[in-house]
Design a binder for these strands. Structure first.
Lengths: 147, 147
DNA sequence: TGACACTAATTAGCTTTGCGAACTATACTG
DNA sequence: CAGTATAGTTCGCAAAGCTAATTAGTGTCA
């Protein structure tokens, strides 16, 4: 479908992709449940997926500076979603891990949070879904190899 | 390429797409030039693209509540990027349009702002670029038909 | 005409998220 | 042991978003 003969201009694509991504991100942000915000959810979700990890690792994955992550983690701890512990070998390091309550909340919350997007995705034809499926993987890589 | 036989689960895709989009949006935000922020640029860009428009129309396109857009437009006016005028037929309505200075700044700024993304896109193989090209269009539609 | 409802945009006040700079505590190294 | 490096934290600030309440202008209809 739509085989592209003319080479794609990365700058042009960057322009359009940036707009689309920014708007979708904004729309997703609006779907936040009361209590857990998108940033908190994103961090929590990463912690669950990547297992116990340090604040620094979290910063890298979440593309956020340390002060921001310190605050996000503090919120999650206060909510009982996450536990901190000091590394016995290097006491500067803080490990974080999801609590059972956190995992439970994550499952429920994730479902609701993504309902908005899923609802819209369900209206798409299968081949468009397939495009987005591939795009999701590419987007991940795009940000991953990072300085 | 990569024909998907198994049907794609929209919920699953929603999860991954949300993470990728959120992170990329965050990374893009960090590339802001001093002076013009991503939100301002997005609004300015929309005004240029969609011609003179009202604040309300801008809110719809930008997926933002009126108070937010009022503030963004006020900033743009203060910077001389945009001009406001009162609709003579309905004096509640405010029209906004890009000034020549705004267009100029937009061209420069856009180039720099998208350099980050374009730089990464250039590392991709053509067929991956093609996927993102299609994805960009789909993302636009996804948010467009909206309640 | 005058009262009432509706609409476009603004103002006010709050929250979240992000940053950089400066600091603390711990670990490493020569 | 002095100096340097590293992991997180605290502080203060700014941007961007929201809701609720307000202002100003339009439209309706009795």
């Amino acid at each position: 479908m739509t085989p592209t003969i003319t080479p794609i201009d990365p700058a042009e694509l960057a322009s359009r992709l940036r707009l689309g991504v920014t708007r979708l991100a904004r729309k997703l942000r609006q779907q936040a449940e009361p209590g857990i915000t998108p940033s908190l959810l994103s961090a929590l979700s990463t912690i669950e997926r990547a297992g116990p990890m340090t604040i620094g690792e979290l910063c890298t994955v979440e593309q956020v500076q340390p002060p921001t992550m310190t605050r996000l983690v503090a919120s999650l701890v206060e909510m009982g979603m996450v536990e901190r512990s000091v590394d016995p070998d290097d006491r500067r390091v803080a490990w974080v891990r999801v609590t059972p309550a956190g995992a439970r909340s994550l499952a429920q919350t994730r479902k609701r949070k993504e309902a908005y997007l899923a609802k819209r995705l369900r209206r798409l034809e299968p081949d468009r879904l397939a495009v987005l499926e591939q795009a999701a993987a590419i987007l991940d890589q795009l940000v991953e190899g990072e300085s």
